[in-house]
Amino acid sequence: MKSKILCCIVTMIVALCVAAPANAADVAQGKCVSYDKDKGVLVIEEFNTKFSKENKFGEPTGKQSTFNTKEALVGITPTPGDIIRLAYDGKSADKKTFRVMNVTKQDLMKK
C-alpha cells in the first residue's frame, strides 16, 4: 500500500514539474479607450503598478496600447472608461490576448 502511495506522489510531482505552462502571459491594466468586438481590437491607456489610496488601480502612464482580442475570453464587455485587466502574449506582434477582465464591473464577491 505504502509503495503504491509513494508511486502516486512521485508521478504527480513529475507530472507537475514536466508540464510547465506552454505560455507565460504578460498582464496589462488600464482604462479602456475603445473596444471593437467584431474586429477584436481593444485599446487601453496603461496604468503602472504604483497602487495608492487615490489610484487603486495604479497611476495612468499616458501610453496607449492596442490588443488583438479575436480569440480571447472576454468577461463583461468593456466600455470606454472601464478599468480593464488583460493577459496577453508579450512575444506576439499584435499582442494576442488570452483573457480580458472588466475590473470595474466584475464584482468578485457576487456568486
Binding site: 510547465a20 502571459a25 491594466q29 475570453l73 472576454v74 468577461g75 485587466r85 483573457r99 466584475q106
Partner: peptide, 18 residues
C-alpha cells in the same frame, strides 16, 4: 466560466507565477 485575470506584475515568487 469566470473571466478573471490574475495580476502577475507585482508577484516575484516563481511558484505563484506558475
Amino acid at each position: 466560466m469566470l473571466i478573471v485575470v490574475a495580476d502577475n506584475r507585482t508577484v516575484e515568487s516563481g511558484w505563484f507565477k506558475f
